[in-house]
Design a protein around this nucleic acid. Structure first.
Length: 921
RNA sequence: AGGCCCGUAGCUCAGUUGGUCCAGAGCGCUUCCUUGACACGGAAGAGGUCGAUGGUUCGAAUCCAUUCGGGCCUACCA
């Protein structure tokens, strides 16, 4: 046992040491359980951080919560697998390496695809692991032996398999459609990757001359440059204002091209002039309209969003420069009829902020409806539960309005689409295959692989089964699929969670989890094992102290590693847990973290106190009755409840244990954390330790030995209770407590406390509450009467019942010590009216002290007290006089109210008599 | 345009299905204490009509409606 623990807790060295120990000893590695293993299983997939990622507060919160849940299950003897890995993050990683090249004065295209990808792998080898190293620092108890990377060969093979199967099932198609195009990245992106922003723009009115008349038709647009690609003007068939123009043509200004006037639902009579320009190559609605009317798709921009040859005189201009010129020319030529302010929502690229251009291009799509239907059903039927509940509805709403998913990206880094096209211009056959085809199966010509790669979320959506060996059927899948829980942020509910559900339900259809394991794990009643997880917990967003979203541009990002360096990982974890009430965002406050570092310090010093006593009383003492090896164990087995305070703390421990287990079951991390905090500090340290000090100091054996042994057993159990939240300090003290003879290699593998109802003791809790009241009352009086702190004073006590007098008598020395009293005298009459007294419904206490009380202050206090009591009595009278209340309220409530009414009555009388006595006005 | 969340002490937040919480915690603040686990400590204290209004109920911080204030997300309206 360490004789000399430092006085103050220094987390840095301790945390580093244990983090290394845990990974080095492979404590959290989970070999595949053999057939016949019937233990319960808990599986959790780490939402893979980007390889380019740096740890931020969101990760830290996410990982803290996951680690708490994981450690809690592991300590309750579940086979607990937490699977870590990283995501290749197509766009982000490619950008990172491009920037690196830029510094060397090189460009991606100069290097060529193959060389470039080599460079990315190099970069990945060099810097890719950073975030996982940071995770180790947090103590994340993941299985490092199973670490994956989404571009690993086995996962890549699975991606190809999925793509080919979906294609064969008709769920993937290729075609020319309008997609969100980022001109900066030069790639298509999905709807989800577009962020909408309200901006002040303009709405311009442009008039088009009607061919064969002197008339005009006026349309409105926010993007005038696209008029260069107009293919028609649409009016609504029901709009009588334009009936006379049906079948006519207009002359497209600037381009001098004739285009038809068509009738289409696209034009809504209420909006603007009721006439709308149709530009099929530059707007999704117009695209659809164009198809309905067989209009040409005139693309006037290239992949950089510069105008192309189709834009005639504007060719070569950037889109915004072109807009200026078009407007200028329209104005000069008299076609621009109006210009007004207009707020519009423009789409920007999520990553670079460039304004998205709707662009007509050849892309690959996943036909989403059949997948979405099953994914919706999995949640509606309760096969997957989403916590908090309101996210369930958000998920379903999204599923109901889902669009086909554009999965191709014009990038180099990623899973290349397993599709080839015949190089022969006359053939152009498309082949989708698992392996590179030798030649075109149709014409025998040479084939070229499609250059696009897949959306990064395509591969991450497969992880729940691909990390378990899919497409092979493996024992890992039987045991660990469906994964149990997913803990993640709302931000990726659609990007990732929804896609996992769609893919999981589709590709794992017909899968069955090992029935014995499923039953043992508590999922017997769930019918469907194709789902990727049984439950999803969506955690909050971490904001800064001012509730602002953290962002690099605002410069308000709190670096978790910086916080950890100052306060310790345990304190940071505890902060996040304690603030993580489900459904509400966290405003991260460092003062709070400071408070929890103090808590760690408190634990540390309580441990020093314990060790000091063990060394003195019984060196080599171990916690008694502790079960190792993660067997669940109720209560504290070896605890000998010899005294009132022993019975009390044992009861309290069991109640807190029940609450903590209950809270963790439903992801109420804050409640678990606060319960332990209040117990350890407010009850264990403030009262229990103080109460047992005299016993520890007795020179004669048994009393001290029992006290010491109880202390050690209680401490052991408390450490285990706290361990999931504060893994490091608990490991440090626990290992010291067992001095190399622990029942497990680590506290992480010891058993988690369970409540034992037999150890609940309501009587002890009530009695300690009375003694605490008495002690606090005396301290209170001392402070008010300004008794010098060092001076012991005599008190008188009047107890309402003999039992209470007996209780105080039996605990006389504790009262004397903790209230700094030198003599207790029991009297048989109320002391309530005496100055320098305090009353409760059970006793009056009076301190004998010559100092005059401050009458004004005392009267004011009494008036407040009286006021409080009278309000309480009035309330109770009103309710108890109400027949409806008596008839409808539960008996327990009525009884408690009666009791309260009585107690308040007693106290009111006491207060009044005292006020008369001191002469309050 | 639709949807969601929040508004409780100076600050940051708890308060699970309405009653035993007419309200708790941490930080901050005031007074006192360096008593051998801990000043990252101990003791005592001040501080809130739970955004506003109306309703449901025997009973509301907790449910409903309206309203004000703050935040967020989804959306192809020129």
């Amino acid at each position: 046992m360490p004789q000399e623990l430092p006085k103050a807790y220094e987390p840095g060295e301790i945390e580093k040491r244990w983090a290394e120990f845990w990974t080095h000893e492979k404590l959290f590695s989970v070999p595949t359980p053999p057939p016949g293993d019937r233990r319960p299983v808990f599986t959790l997939l780490l939402p893979p951080p980007n390889v380019t990622g740096r740890l931020h507060m969101g990760h830290m919160l996410n990982q803290t919560q996951m680690d708490i849940i994981v450690r809690w299950h592991r300590m309750r003897a579940f086979i607990t697998l937490w699977l870590p890995g990283t995501d290749h993050a197509g766009i982000a990683t490619q950008m990172m390496v491009e920037k690196q090249l830029e510094k060397e004065g090189k460009k991606r295209r100069e290097l060529g695809r193959e060389k470039f990808i080599e460079r990315v792998w190099e970069w990945k080898r060099e810097y890719g692991g950073a975030i996982l190293d940071q995770m180790k620092r947090l103590g994340a108890s993941v299985d490092w032996d199973r670490e994956y990377f989404t571009m690993d060969e086995n996962l890549s093979r699975a991606v190809r398999e999925v793509f080919v199967r979906l294609y064969e099932e008709g769920l993937i198609y290729r075609g020319s459609y309008i997609v969100n195009w980022c001109p900066w990245h030069e790639t298509a992106i999905s709807d989800l990757e577009v962020k909408h922003e309200e901006v002040q723009g303009k709405l311009w009115g442009i008039r088009y001359p009607v061919v064969g008349s002197n008339g005009f038709i006026t349309v409105a647009t926010t993007r005038p440059e696209t008029m260069l690609g107009d293919a028609a003007i649409a009016v609504n068939a029901k709009d009588e204002r334009y009936t006379y123009l049906h079948g006519k043509k207009v002359l497209l200004p600037l381009m001098n091209r004739e285009i038809p006037i068509i009738t289409d639902e696209l034009a809504q009579p209420e909006f603007g002039t009721g006439a709308v320009k149709v530009t099929p190559a530059h707007d999704p609605d117009d695209f659809e309209a164009g198809k309905r009317h067989n209009l040409p798709q005139i693309n006037v921009m290239d992949e950089h969003a510069h105008m192309n040859v189709n834009a005639g005189p504007y060719a070569g201009l950037d889109r915004f420069e072109a807009r200026k010129r078009v407007l200028h020319d329209l104005r000069e030529q008299g076609f621009l009829v109006s210009e007004k302010d207009y707020t519009l929502a423009i789409g920007k690229c999520d990553r670079c902020g460039t304004i998205i251009e709707p662009r007509l291009s050849e892309q690959w799509f996943v036909k989403i409806q059949p997948l979405a239907d099953r994914a919706k059903e999995a949640v509606e039927s309760g096969e997957i539960t989403i916590v908090p509940d309101n996210y369930r509805q958000i998920y379903l709403n999204w599923m109901n309005n889902i669009h086909d998913w554009c999965v191709s990206r014009q990038l180099w880094w990623g899973h290349r689409i397993p599709a080839w096209t015949c190089a022969d211009r006359n053939c152009e056959e498309v082949i989708v295959a698992r392996e590179t085809p030798g030649k075109c199966p149709k014409c025998g010509g040479k084939v070229e692989q499609v250059s696009d790669v897949l959306d990064t979320w395509f591969s991450s959506g497969l992880l729940p089964f691909t990390t378990l060996g899919w497409p092979e059927k493996t024992r890992d899948q039987e045991v660990f699929y469906p994964t149990t829980t997913l803990i993640t942020a709302y931000e990726i509910l659609f990007f990732w969670v929804a896609r996992m559900i769609m893919f999981g339900c589709h590709f794992m259809r017909g899968h069955h989890q090992d029935p014995a394991i499923k039953r043992a794990s508590g999922w017997a009643e769930k019918k469907n094992d194709s789902v990727p997880f049984r439950q999803v917990y969506i955690h909050a967003l971490v904001r800064d102290a001012e509730r602002q979203k953290m962002s690099k541009t605002k410069g308000n990002v709190v670096d978790p590693l910086d916080v950890i360096n100052r306060f310790g990982t345990d304190a940071t974890r505890f902060t996040l847990a304690a603030m993580a009430a489900p459904g509400t965002d966290i405003a991260f406050s460092e003062s709070r973290t400071g408070g929890y570092r103090a808590f760690a310090n408190k634990i540390w010093n309580a441990a020093r106190f314990m060790f000091m006593n063990v060394d003195r009383i019984e060196p080599g003492l171990r916690p008694s009755g502790a079960a190792g090896g993660g067997c669940p164990q109720a209560g504290i087995a070896g605890f000998k409840a010899a005294t009132l305070e022993d019975r009390w703390i044992l009861s309290r421990f069991n109640r807190v244990t029940a609450d903590v287990n209950d809270a963790l079951e439903t992801f109420r991390f804050h409640e678990a954390a606060n319960r332990i905090y209040d117990f350890f500090w407010g009850e264990f340290c403030d009262w229990y330790l103080e109460l047992i000090k005299p016993r520890l100091n007795t020179e004669f054996g048994d009393r001290a030995r029992i006290a010491c042994s109880n202390l050690v057993s209680l401490f052991d159990a408390s450490l285990r209770l706290l361990h999931p939240i504060m893994p490091f300090i608990t490991e440090e003290i626990w290992q010291a407590l067992w001095e190399g003879e622990a029942p497990a290699k680590s506290i992480a593998l010891a058993s988690y406390p369970q409540a034992d109802e037999k150890q609940f003791d309501l009587a002890a809790e009530t009695e300690i509450a009375i003694l605490r009241d008495l002690i606090v009352s005396v301290r209170n009086l001392r402070a008010e009467l300004k008794v010098e702190p060092k001076r012991k004073i005599p008190i008188e006590v009047f107890a309402h019942e003999a039992q209470i007098e007996k209780l105080i008598e039996e605990n006389r020395s504790a009262v004397e010590r903790l209230a700094h009293v030198d003599k207790i005298t029991f009297v048989q009459n109320s002391l309530a009216k005496l100055p320098g007294s305090r009353s409760t419904a059970r006793f009056d206490v009076h301190i004998i002290h010559e100092r005059k009380i401050d009458v004004t202050a005392e009267c004011e206090r009494l008036r407040k007290e009286l006021d409080r009591l009278e309000r309480g009595i009035a309330n109770a009278d009103r309710q108890l006089g109400d027949e409806q209340f008596l008839a409808k309220a539960p008996a327990q409530i009525v009884e408690n109210l009666r009791k309260q009414q009585h107690e308040f009555g007693v106290l009111k009388d006491k207060t009044l008599s005292k006020m008369r006595e001191i002469g309050c006005g």
